[in-house]
Design a protein around this nucleic acid. Sequence first.
DNA 1: ATGCATGTTCGATGTGTATCGTAGATGCCG
DNA 2: CGGCATCTACGATACACATCGAACATGCAT
Lengths: 122, 122
Amino acid sequence: MRTLDQARLPQPDLAEVEIGTVLQALADPVRLQIVRLLSSQGAAACGELDLPVKRSTVSHHLRTLRETGLLETHLKGNTRVSKVRREELDRRFPGLLASILDATPAVPAPSEEEPGGADGER
Amino acid sequence: MRTLDQARLPQPDLAEVEIGTVLQALADPVRLQIVRLLSSQGAAACGELDLPVKRSTVSHHLRTLRETGLLETHLKGNTRVSKVRREELDRRFPGLLASILDATPAVPAPSEEEPGGADGER
DNA sequence: ATGCATGTTCGATGTGTATCGTAGATGCCG
DNA sequence: CGGCATCTACGATACACATCGAACATGCAT
């Protein structure tokens, strides 16, 4: 029976998760990047994530994200495959993930000098 | 001449604000509560906010929220009236504030005991 | 002017947590 | 059956920051 298709690590019911907890989880730059990567890649193992921190730190963040309810992780042989719980999250917090992932990067900063077309503007 | 209707404290252009910065600002429980209060009350002075921290701490959080771009504050006599930059925020991060403010509180937690109404017991 | 209220600023303190290195557990492959 | 890879667990460290109290600035009323 499918009780052990692939063991899934323990994760909270999203009904019990506060929005503040989610915001706190996503407030960390590395964790936000992880969610971005997994959202575009669909799923990935810990080692496949290209991040500016050491492996043990990535593992720590993956655990945090899972315990917060943002990720689900199954065991596959010796690797843990994680992915975003997108559908459940969309039900619990409609529009939240979309608005965050769709956010455009900030524009540099106007540099408080003369705004006159020093740049390529024409 | 409305050049000085009421002096407005310096605030960033939202175009320069990263989503990560906003998430970090909203990750603090007190700041999230402030945004909630201001969103429902429309605007309020520092002292009018009912919060579980001291006045100087509230002031600190209001400054953080303003410098992050979430609030605008104008001077009115001796008081500072703050409010959420709702329209600008909705343009910069469509749906973000709505999804956060609309989030429902978490349900308690199933308490891994027998679910039968034993909780009323004494 | 004097006093009072409102807010901010500053320094100090404590706590939380992001990060790392190392060691250990587990599965795969030849 | 070794040996290697992947990943987690643990302890240590460092830094960020939430919080407070006290001192100061400012405006208003009497």
